[in-house]
Amino acid sequence: MKTKRIACLGLFIALAFVLSYVEFLLPLNIGIPGAKVGLANLVVMVALYTLGKKDAALLSFVRVVLVGLTFGNLAMLLYSLAGAILSFLAMLIAKRTKLFSITGVSVLGGVFHNVGQIIVAMLVLETGSLLYYLPFLIVIGTISGVVIGLLSGMITARVGRLFDIK
């Protein structure tokens, strides 16, 4: 099943890349730096629930680096990477506990993505004033987490079997 796995992973990365591009084209312009809906997280969620944690981690990492190098700069790459790592760890732990459905996991992912980004931004810019934006980002992360979670729940239920290589 190795070939299928690699093909699936490639497909997922391409999809995540496209969704990142869509998000790049339609930035959520509400005057808050780093605020994102996190459409690409949809793919990471689906991958986490179908391909497993190792592939999902790889997918998440490759996506961030690709998008960062293509559309952003080094600083942006750094922020996204921190957000992605923190968010992935949070989702992994949440999933392990089996306390939450896919929506709860997604909410944690969304919230921690923004928290990670802002922490790195604060360290890089050496300013605490960004802390002011954190509550907004948590709220946005929660809302987008719910939406992404519900969507990825539906997708996993309907097409998950196709990718299910386990």
């Binding site: 306390l99 939450f100 459905s101 929506t103």
Partner: peptide, 8 residues
């Protein structure tokens, strides 16, 4: 969604 999701 589970109840726990709402609590979270």
């Amino acid at each position: 969604m589970k109840k726990n999701d709402f609590y979270l």
